[in-house]
Simulated assay, not measured.
Amino acid sequence: MKRWLTAFCLVASLACAAEVRLKDPGHIEARGSDMRVFRGDEIEPLFGSVVKTGDNVLFTAALPLVAGESYRVEVKSPDGSWSERKLTFRLRQAAVPTVSISPAPTVLPANALKLYLHFSEPMEQGVFLERITLQREDGSVVNGAFRETELWSPDGKRLTLWLHPGRQKTGVNLNTDEGLVLQEGRKHTLKIAASWRSTAGVALGKEAVFTVAAGAADHSCPDPQRWQVRVPKAGTSDPLKITFDEPLDPAMLATALKVKRGGTEIAGTVAMGVDARSWYFIPAEAWAPGPGVIVIDPLLEDLAGNNLNGPFEVDREAPVKAAGMREVKFEIR
């Protein structure tokens, strides 16, 4: 075997595991006739392209290489003969994804609009309606439970699961014909298929099952006057805590509340309770004595889509009053 053949290597990539790279000895041109790759003992080489970049020659297969499979790489020597080396492609170990739900424990108003699935790894997209099933207590499937809109966080790990608004909003055709997705006072079962894979190709491997209980429908706006604020002591970095009287949208809570002092937003980190009923602000520096204010985005919603500006459903005969407060004051002592 030619000495320079020891420079062969397989390049493993989670996005495209289909490359064989050769440290160029100098005589190879960027054409398929100088380098070819075979699977196992097959006679016909793989389809692919050969590109020479600097000191490297890169063969990119038309289809991904198979983990654990042997490949034979052949390169034409300067004298026209072929030299070969057998390699085994090993995919980098990828983590098995897991999934959780928020808010949790999951008790939703019967007219809830959404909940969130949180995955430990970026997941394959475009398949969620095939991977999620909602069942009633008798085991029957709730058909058409979810809106087809697929909304992922930028990192591909959080899916906003929309309960179909056409069924959740009173008086709409689907609501009249098929009723609410969730039945008040009943428990439902949300199942996540074991076959749902991460973008690395690794499946959950085990069906995930969550209980979703439905309470009374909620048509009231969130009201900051009913919130409880726990104020930390001066000189500490203890969190400023708000306890809500109902769960609020977990994703919106991450950015909907701002802590200001003297008109300036102060730096810090935000955390939330898993039940979406509590919010914490941890300052970057210890608290100094004096007043402060928590400014609230009026678009902050509860689980039924009601926000500080008004309810999701507007009843012209019995209008619901919007929340009057847009900020909560506190004093550090």
Results as ranks from 00 to 15, higher is better:
166 G>Y: 05
193 A>T: 06
298 P>G: 07
261 R>L: 01
123 M>E: 03
44 E>F: 04
270 V>W: 10
4 W>F: 14
332 I>E: 00
192 I>M: 06
63 L>H: 15
172 V>N: 04
147 R>T: 03
321 K>C: 05
174 L>Q: 09
17 A>G: 11
320 V>A: 10
46 L>S: 05
45 P>D: 08
237 S>Q: 12
148 E>Y: 10
141 V>H: 02
253 L>Y: 03
16 C>H: 13
218 D>T: 01
255 T>I: 12
237 S>K: 13
21 R>A: 15
286 A>E: 12
130 E>V: 03
179 G>C: 02
47 F>M: 12
266 I>M: 01
139 G>R: 15
220 S>R: 15
24 D>S: 09
270 V>F: 09
149 T>P: 00
94 A>N: 09
12 A>I: 00
312 F>L: 12
312 F>R: 11
285 E>C: 15
316 R>G: 09
21 R>D: 10
38 F>M: 08
222 P>D: 05
118 H>P: 00
5 L>N: 07
314 V>T: 12
307 N>L: 05
228 Q>V: 13
186 R>A: 15
225 Q>I: 08
253 L>E: 01
225 Q>S: 11
216 A>T: 15
144 G>H: 06
198 S>T: 06
184 E>W: 12
151 L>I: 13
152 W>C: 11
242 I>M: 15
287 W>A: 00
122 P>H: 00
6 T>I: 15
167 R>I: 00
203 A>R: 12
75 V>H: 02
195 S>R: 12
112 A>M: 01
136 R>T: 10
177 D>K: 15
48 G>Q: 08
211 T>C: 08
284 A>V: 05
68 G>Q: 07
275 D>R: 06
216 A>Y: 03
333 R>E: 15
324 G>M: 07
50 V>L: 14
11 V>Y: 03
29 E>V: 09
82 W>K: 07
23 K>E: 11
180 L>R: 13
270 V>A: 11
40 G>I: 11
153 S>Q: 11
58 L>Q: 13
236 T>C: 06
134 L>E: 05
131 R>N: 10
80 G>E: 14
142 V>R: 11
71 Y>W: 11
13 S>E: 10
38 F>S: 06
92 R>G: 10
104 A>H: 14
179 G>M: 03
81 S>K: 10
127 V>T: 04
77 S>M: 10
28 I>V: 05
102 S>Q: 14
70 S>T: 14
150 E>R: 04
195 S>F: 01
10 L>N: 02
112 A>E: 00
277 R>C: 13
324 G>W: 02
184 E>G: 11
286 A>V: 14
181 V>I: 08
210 F>L: 03
35 M>E: 03
268 G>D: 03
191 K>C: 02
190 L>M: 08
281 F>D: 01
291 P>V: 06
248 L>M: 01
226 R>I: 05
215 G>I: 04
132 I>N: 03
61 A>W: 06
254 A>T: 13
152 W>S: 12
181 V>E: 00
204 L>W: 01
83 S>R: 03
289 P>C: 09
190 L>Q: 02
218 D>M: 02
201 G>Y: 09
232 P>Y: 08
256 A>V: 01
24 D>W: 00
132 I>M: 08
59 F>R: 00
110 A>W: 07
249 D>I: 02
117 L>F: 02
